[in-house]
């Protein structure tokens, strides 16, 4: 493997609801023995990472995935000509589908990625999670998809209040009686359309695990975390690594059954009987991925190694009781930087 790598990273939105780009870059820069040049990929002229010159060596604007995979690829070809990319690390949920589709064409250009298969990506979607749990033998709170309000009374017989009323992709409300279910159904339908998901509400504490699968069923890394402080947007502001084998076991079971490839974040709830429920799978590393790095598991670097076919031993330990505490910082930027990225698309 080369000692110098050029890696493109997106998700530079290091705002109060941060993307994973900057933490991933920090992880890659920590990689001992490998000199990494970082190319920022940006969708917005004001992504803070664009202006963090100590972490991001050069940045390029790229078109939104909504402009089509072919246009994104054209732009990446141009960037590749300038920078000779070795690897691309996409970090936005909205771009993953497109990058998974583009992966073989990027590979043919000599650019590696380390992403889940399209079917792995699709089957863990929120509205299919209950099915997913049944398929892989994982505990997922009971949920059902409904297309018409007339189904509500019959369907509710399978649930105990409270239930969570969710949109296909966004929005969730907790309903304590049938009238509230009706009202949230209408609310979500008006905003996001059908179908609506009804899910059994589970009382308990929420836990998160950052993990890396090698596509063959092996768990290369897994570090659990409990949020200690949450912003008014529901994002972790502080969190601590845990020693809880049950969380790791559930993660390993999931990765082993699904043969997940790439980084992921798993959200779990433990109820009062100590029973664990899987509530969400994010198909990428989370914004708190630098905590596992600092605790001893550099999963972003391991993902790149795996992509290059290197033999990677699974991490076996990590520091328990490591905390992250996020902070915000006013980076002072010259107008000429903003002018460059917004007029020529490069910085």
């Amino acid at each position: 493997m080369k000692k110098q790598l050029t890696i493109a990273v997106s998700g530079l939105n290091n705002t109060d609801n941060p993307g994973p780009g900057i933490p991933v870059i920090r992880a890659l820069k920590d990689w001992k023995g490998i000199d990494v040049r970082i190319i920022g990929i940006s969708y917005d002229h004001l992504e803070p990472g664009l202006y963090m010159h100590d972490l991001v060596d050069k940045s390029y604007s790229v078109p939104f995935p909504s402009e089509g995979a072919d246009n994104l690829l054209l732009r990446l070809e141009y960037i590749h000509e300038q920078e000779q990319l070795d690897f691309i690390f996409p970090n936005f949920d909205a771009e993953l589908f497109t990058f998974i589709k583009l992966a073989p064409r990027l590979e043919a250009m000599g650019i590696k990625t380390y992403l889940p298969e399209l079917e792995q990506f699709e089957e863990r979607q929120k509205y299919r999670l209950y099915e997913y749990g049944e398929k892989y033998g994982l505990n997922v709170p009971k949920s059902t998809t409904i297309h018409s309000i007339s189904e509500v009374p019959e369907v509710l017989k399978q649930f105990e209040f409270p239930v969570v009323v969710k949109g296909k992709f966004y929005d969730a409300y907790i309903a304590y009686n049938q009238e509230q279910v009706y009202s949230y159904f209408h609310k979500i339908q008006a905003k996001w359309g059908l179908p609506i998901i009804l899910q059994q509400f589970v009382y308990g504490n929420e836990y998160n695990v950052t993990a890396l699968g090698d596509g063959k069923g092996n768990t290369i890394g897994a570090v659990p975390m409990r949020k200690k402080f949450i912003t008014d947007k529901g994002k972790a502001w502080a969190g601590v690594t845990l020693d809880e084998p049950a969380l790791i076991d559930m993660t390993k079971k999931l990765i082993s059954a699904s043969k997940w490839r790439g980084g992921m974040e798993i959200e779990l709830i433990k109820d009062k009987n100590n029973k664990l429920f899987l509530v969400e799978i994010n198909p990428r590393f989370p914004a708190w991925v630098y905590l596992p790095v600092a605790a001893g598991q550099n999963m972003p670097a391991a993902a790149v190694k795996l992509a290059f076919g290197e033999n990677v031993n699974a991490f076996t330990t990590y520091d328990v009781g490591k905390l992250f505490v996020r902070y915000s910082f006013d980076n002072i930027v010259d107008l000429s930087d903003f002018q460059k990225i917004s007029t020529i698309g490069e910085l």
């Binding site: 969708y43 917005d44 078109p63 402009e67 054209l74 732009r75 917004s342």
Partner: peptide, 15 residues
């Protein structure tokens, strides 16, 4: 106007 969140024009030539 150059606003945050506006689709940028770079790389959309083929469109």
């Amino acid at each position: 106007t150059l606003n945050a969140g506006v689709t940028n024009k770079f790389g959309t030539k083929s469109l």
